[in-house]
């Protein structure tokens, strides 16, 4: 059983809300793993705050999706009681954290996309969504400041940091195309311009890799999502139907 992007009116809105919610939830879960593991205490705080931002956006989107859908689904129904093949997040966000460079490059690619996405969605006819987009957009701009500054520090830091940053760019590039297919009309050109500018300042090369991998928006994920969900959903699956 998979999930297809719906095409009709409010159904497609619900699907879009869930997809963006899933993107933010999965990334929040990943960033939470850095807590007590960051290179310096200040960065622990920064990554934790960013994780909280993404979690907050996910919760707002799920809640709104549940309301429109009208089947009584709550934020926890979406997060904790859907199987892997029902999740609609892009593959980029479910990739493991890797080293700090890997996490920052993943963030750079996603943040630049989010800034454009939320800007577009502030113009939505749906007032609630446009409100969520306004707040999420502000946060995304801050996230992009953080990830692009780190990309430059690492790309133009030491030889080791440069190598790790380039490895991360090369490894994650194949997950970027997926950002531009699916809900939202975010333009690849604009995203590419932002990314190229940051990479240039960082002394990093744009990869020459023509190969792209997607499927997340259709519920076809890498092996990583399964373990992530198993851990996240453990309590609800072990003790169903209780209040916490």
């Amino acid at each position: 059983m998979g999930a297809e992007i719906a095409t009709s009116g409010s159904e497609s809105l619900v699907t879009a809300l869930i997809a963006h919610g899933d993107d933010n939830l999965v990334l929040a879960q990943r960033l939470g793993e850095w807590i007590s593991n960051a290179p310096e205490l200040e960065e622990d705080i920064a990554l934790g705050n960013i994780a909280l931002d993404h979690l907050g956006v996910a919760r707002a989107l799920y809640t709104h999706a549940g309301q429109i859908e009208g089947r009584g689904r709550t934020e926890d129904d979406f997060a904790m009681r859907r199987a892997e093949r029902e999740f609609l997040n892009v593959l980029l966000v479910e990739q493991p954290n890797g080293d700090f460079a890997h996490t920052m490059i993943r963030a750079l690619f996603f943040d630049a996309y989010q800034v454009d996405l939320w800007e577009e969605l502030t113009a939505s006819d749906d007032d609630t969504l446009s409100g969520i987009a306004a707040r999420a957009g502000k946060e995304a701009r801050y996230h992009l400041l953080h990830s692009s500054a780190w990309t430059v520090r690492l790309g133009d830091g030491t030889e080791e940091s440069h190598r790790r940053a380039q490895d991360a760019v090369d490894a994650l590039w194949r997950y970027t195309d997926e950002l531009f297919h699916g809900p939202g009309q975010v333009s690849r050109e604009r995203w590419q311009a932002t990314i190229e500018q940051v990479l240039e300042e960082a002394g990093l090369e744009v990869p020459d890799d023509p190969y792209q991998w997607g499927g997340g928006r259709r519920g076809l994920h890498s092996e990583h999502l399964g373990s992530l969900l198993a851990e996240m959903q453990w309590m609800q699956r072990s003790y169903p139907g209780l209040q916490w």
Partner: peptide
């Protein structure tokens, strides 16, 4: 550097 000092100060 000053940028990360500012960002960290804002976070903390």
């Amino acid at each position: 550097d000053p940028e990360s000092a500012l960002q960290n100060a804002r976070d903390v």
